[in-house]
Design a protein around this nucleic acid. Structure first.
Length: 464
RNA sequence: GGUGAGGUGGCAGAGUGGUUAUGCGUUCGCCUGCAGAGCGAACCUAUAUGGGUUCAAAUCCCAUCCUCACCUCCA
């Protein structure tokens, strides 16, 4: 039986089978690089990184593209405030982006295109739209004529009349109609580029159309982003792209829910942001990833102490499980382990195939962890079982993007020596000295676990 | 106001008609030289509200209330 991954598609409001017959092409709207990334950005990127890891684990090839918006009013504002060129701001925050997201164990996308490096592709697209009469040149720039694209609103389920009566559209006399949006904005100010219509810079939406088509083609599998991008950004991308190509744009629109704080969207304008760097310092990458995957991607999650603490507890269980598997000894019957592994694998994959339900997938993952820890407590985990279980655990850790901290051979040797020393002291009832050694070991981030017959150890990530 | 998504125990989070998962938490035990970690058991009489359909509803239908997001830049 061929198992298919179903993903909820915003446009058709239904789950659709992901086409896995060839390379899976995924475009994710990335960040505007004018400031630090916050946990909201992290969530979306973690979800897509995990999706990519899952698809690859299933033997599929993925071509993953994530853009940087590096030309934008906010960048220019910031540059003016600091009295530096806009490129300095965008380069600084692209650098900061990689610092944060490398730490979060995000696999870098195949392509990480920057808007400023694709001005020509954008201009070609604008030209095509002007030629096809979907766009017009006005005093302030080149605009897309929304009324020419009959299906406008099909993604966000908005009606153009209602949008206009909503009266939140900016009044601009130079546009033919209020909903028309800029493809190219005339500007003498830096940064700007020459165009057939006049010096200026691109509108926001055109970059994603141009870059996704360049790297993925005119019709690709998944286009994603936060659900706050549905309107107007993705709606406008559809209008531009489909007017240009005459073909359907993305096959599946996958949108990630917002991260909230006290049930309010995390956003710079609200002032309730938690930057990735600070969150990483407090909780580390593994806890933060677990947290971001603990709810369904389409729903909001609230960033607060309690669920993060819970995930820390769980992460400690994972570390414990992993190290016990590494140090398991003895041989014996493995049928129980085989069943555990095949059940877990099945449940884990079923969950992710079902609209990428990571919370259920994590349920399967933790079931395995708890079972191993239970076997350890009853002194019934053997090395032969571990050899069967460990690969499955590692595979899931890899898909989830989690990394248990490792130790070098020499560190391991010295810890083993210390454990032996402590053991002899304990046998002589010299507990005070034995505790000193335990303390010494704990300073290396290693916690000892005394079992009936022997002492095992766990390298714990330093958190908090 | 429009559109969309939701409202399940202290918290997180499943379950789309038929013994109310599961995890965290709390309590009590076990284990231990002690501790940590781990294990076991118990607990919180949970399904927004009001109707309806049904032998049977968290699950289907209707109404109401509430929350969030989008409708302006936003992951």
């Amino acid at each position: 039986m061929v198992v298919t991954l179903k993903i909820f598609d915003t446009q058709s409001s239904s789950e659709k089978d992901l086409d896995t017959s060839d390379i899976i092409r995924v475009y994710l709207c990335g960040v505007t690089v004018y400031d630090e990334s916050h946990v909201g950005h992290a969530r979306t990127i973690i979800v897509f990184d995990t999706l990519r890891r899952f698809l690859e684990s299933q033997g599929h090839k993925v071509n993953f593209v994530q853009n940087f918006t590096d030309v934008d009013d906010k960048i220019i504002d910031r540059a003016q405030k600091e009295g530096v060129p806009a490129s300095e701001i965008s380069q600084r925050y692209i650098g900061r982006y990689f610092e944060d997201f490398d730490k979060l164990n995000i696999i870098r996308a195949e392509h990480l295109p920057k808007a400023t490096e694709h001005i020509n592709q954008m201009l070609e697209l604008v030209k095509s739209l002007v030629d096809k009469d979907f766009a017009y040149v006005s005093k302030n720039g080149v605009y897309f004529s929304v009324s020419k694209f009959k299906e406008y609103g099909k993604l966000s389920k908005k009606k153009t009349e209602e949008l206009i009566s909503g009266a939140r559209v900016e009044v601009d006399e130079t546009k033919h109609e209020p909903l028309d949006f800029a493809l190219w904005k005339f500007s003498d100010q830096n940064p700007n580029w020459d165009s057939p219509w006049g010096k200026g810079r691109p509108g926001w939406h055109i970059e994603c159309s141009a870059m996704s088509i360049k790297y993925l083609g005119e019709n690709f599998e998944i286009h994603g982003g936060g659900n706050d991008l549905i309107f107007p950004h993705h709606e406008n991308e559809i209008a531009q792209s489909e007017s240009h190509t005459g073909k359907p744009f993305a096959k599946i629109w996958m949108h990630v829910g917002m991260v909230t704080m006290d049930n309010e969207k995390m956003a710079k304008s609200v002032g309730n942001i938690k930057i990735v760097k600070d969150s990483l310092n407090e909780w580390g990458p593994n806890v933060l990833r677990l947290f971001c995957l603990s709810g369904h991607y389409s729903k909001p999650i609230d960033y607060s102490e309690e669920p993060l603490k819970e995930n820390l507890t769980k992460w400690r269980q994972v570390e414990n499980c992993y190290y016990e598997l590494l140090s398991a000894e003895g041989t014996g019957d493995t049928s129980e382990a085989e069943k555990l592994v095949s059940d877990t694998k099945q449940e884990f994959e079923d969950a992710l195939n079902n609209n990428f339900s990571t919370s259920l997938g994590l349920g399967a993952f933790f079931k395995l962890v708890k079972e191993v820890n239970r076997l350890v407590a009853t002194e019934s985990l053997t090395e032969s079982m571990s050899k069967i279980i460990l690969p499955q655990l590692e595979s899931m850790l890899d898909i989830l993007g989690l990394k248990v901290q490792k130790m070098t051979e020499s560190e391991i040797t010295s810890i083993k020596d210390l454990i032996n020393k402590r053991e002899s002291l304990r046998k002589e009832n010299k507990y005070e000295e034995a505790d000193k050694i335990r303390q010494q070991i704990s300073e290396l981030g290693v916690t000892l676990v005394d079992h009936k017959s022997r002492t095992t150890w766990v390298k714990q990530e330093k958190i908090g």
